[in-house]
Design a protein around this nucleic acid. Structure first.
Lengths: 337, 337
DNA sequence: ATATTTTACGAAATCGATTTAGTAAAAGTA
DNA sequence: TACTTTTACTAAATCGATTTCGTAAAATAT
């Protein structure tokens, strides 16, 4: 079933059919209706590849998970963002193509080559750490890109992330108002833009409040996952002096920290209050439930979709959006007494 | 940069270039090397749409999340499966296209139409409950499909799922060996093939062991999520008579059940032992950690990829694979004394 | 030396759309 | 009436590949 079939069924040329499909104005009302009827009855849809070939627009958005680790579909935060993005970009008429991660794929070419290969109209780059050079090439290309948790600089690139300065500020503020003065930080060794912003803002916030920063209380886990958080906290406990409160830059790290604390029979928040970051579902399942900073994943995905759409249609210049984070108070951070 | 450019750079015809790219045998060794060098230097990749148009093969696999709810990227189990599938199908040279969910998308056409539109080489259907007619059409079409947690019947369809009979058998066996005789079941009202198999096998397993089934102890939550599990258990507790152990057909339901039990100051496993199903990451984060039945998500994704590949290449007839589940013992189900 | 086969390539058709440029017929204008 | 403009349509080029078929030249056989 192709456009030629439709054309002969309707007794018109393929050009006419194409024009009707694409809403050209130079078509008679009578003809339009007759052909449209056939279009509806047959359920005909033009071939995507033929259309792409002819128009150079594919109506496909490429999804790139950048960074060596944990930026895959394994990361609950990114999955939520992509889920929201998928929903909203779908409303705008696009489907999304997930590029298989290079390290697993037989495809040796870089992201840019693959974007060109599929003629994607734009792409979204979700970033962990250790960004490959390939991502940079894509960013600098003519393909509209929007970055999530990565600061892109290309002339066709925008990016979006939570306002990570505020993330830490809100955490510190909450600790402070709850009476805590001995506050530690659990970051990640292999730090990304996001985590280093949080660390920077954490220090600044303490300083602004006149709280002395104890460098011993700033520790870093090896990786991003729960196990690494556990290991980091375990070693920290072994070293001795502990703060009364800690901010973990991700919920998973906080979960690991909780496990280590419990193992040493330290209570939460009694012996140590804990705040995480992301607000993944599991925060409600732990005991105590985890106070955390919610990143508005739905909003980030939605705005990413809208920004990309505008970028593709040249309705907007590249820009940056920082999404307001919100602290979600649960049980892991009672008021100190 | 297209094939014509390459051809003129090399001083040969486009046909020759194409043949070199596609490993035709009627090419002289000298020419092959000369052109290959240019190919390598320029990093040229043939346009996907042109290639698809000419060959009718797209090297794209469509991903369909079927069912009205919770079969989206929100479901940790399905995300893990897709993640593994993506990895392995990527190794085989395919990228994956996520169809935006119909209810959100402006695309009114059904899945089959969209598969044809993109000329996907095959597709994977991930199923929740309430399968749409559109999925059935796809299953019955000529497009190779593999179903995950859905029994497809098309002549080009295979499917894969955990062996759900064994899931329940193992749970009941574990409860039994731990000394439990009063065992309940927490299912889902809107049951799918998967959950009804688990319920059926649950009953059979009890019967085989000569344990009387108390129909009051078989309850169903409204939906799939934690909150629904909480509500179901809360009402159950309010009704009075409780079993000493319960099997929840999903970890999320078990989490909800845990919350309800704790709220009523009932201990786990002291007052009630709990076993979930799926083994999502969060099972390790709860207190107590959740004993559960692990579905081998990596294997399911990997085999799904391989089955689909074989189906596409007609190297295999449609078939079914039941993946062996494995019980993962944690703290929510101590031995009864 | 001639006939036959093999090798190595290219011309051109094809896939299924879009889009430009051209035209006959209808409508409008002077 | 004759000219101009508008309307409604189509032929054909194009997008960038693949693939069939044809054919000179080279290799081999007779």
């Amino acid at each position: 079933m192709n456009i030629k079939t439709i054309a002969s069924m309707a007794g018109v040329s393929v050009a006419t059919v194409s024009k009707i499909i694409n809403n050209y104005s130079d078509i008679g009302e009578e003809t339009r209706q007759r052909v449209q009827k056939i279009l509806d009855e047959t359920g005909y849809k033009p071939s995507s590849s033929a259309k792409t070939l002819a128009t150079k627009k594919s109506n496909i958005i490429g999804v790139v998970f950048a960074g060596k680790l944990n930026s895959d579909l394994n990361h609950p935060f990114f999955v939520s963002v992509i889920n929201s993005f998928k929903k909203h970009i779908g409303l705008l008429g696009y489907d999304i193509l997930l590029f298989s991660n290079e390290k697993f794929s037989t495809a040796k070419e870089d992201y840019l080559a693959r974007c060109r290969h599929f003629q994607v109209d734009g792409c979204i780059i979700i970033a962990g750490d250790d960004i490959e050079a390939s991502v940079h090439n894509l960013d600098q290309s003519s393909i509209p890109c929007i970055g999530v948790d990565i600061a892109l600089s290309g002339t066709n690139s925008s990016y979006i992330m939570s306002d990570n300065m505020k993330v830490s500020a809100k955490v510190v503020e909450h600790f402070y108002l709850s009476g805590y003065r001995e506050i530690g930080f659990l970051g990640i060794e292999r730090s990304s833009v996001v985590t280093s912003m949080r660390e920077k803002a954490f220090n600044e916030s303490l300083r602004n409040l006149g709280i002395t920063i104890n460098p011993d209380w700033i520790i870093h886990s090896k990786e991003y996952d729960e196990e690494s958080g556990y290991q980091a906290m375990k070693q920290f406990i072994a070293r001795g002096s502990l703060p009364k409160a800690m901010f973990a830059v991700s919920d998973l790290l906080a979960f690991g920290a909780m496990r280590a604390l419990k193992e040493h029979h330290l209570t939460i928040p009694g012996d140590m209050a804990l705040i995480g970051c992301d607000d993944i579902d599991a925060c409600s399942y732990t005991d105590p439930t985890l106070t955390t900073v919610r990143q508005d994943k739905e909003k980030i995905g939605r705005l990413a979709a809208m920004m990309l759409f505008d970028l593709i249609n040249k309705q907007m210049d590249p820009g940056v959006i920082m999404v307001e984070p919100e602290i979600v108070i649960r049980k892991s951070c009672g008021g100190a007494e």
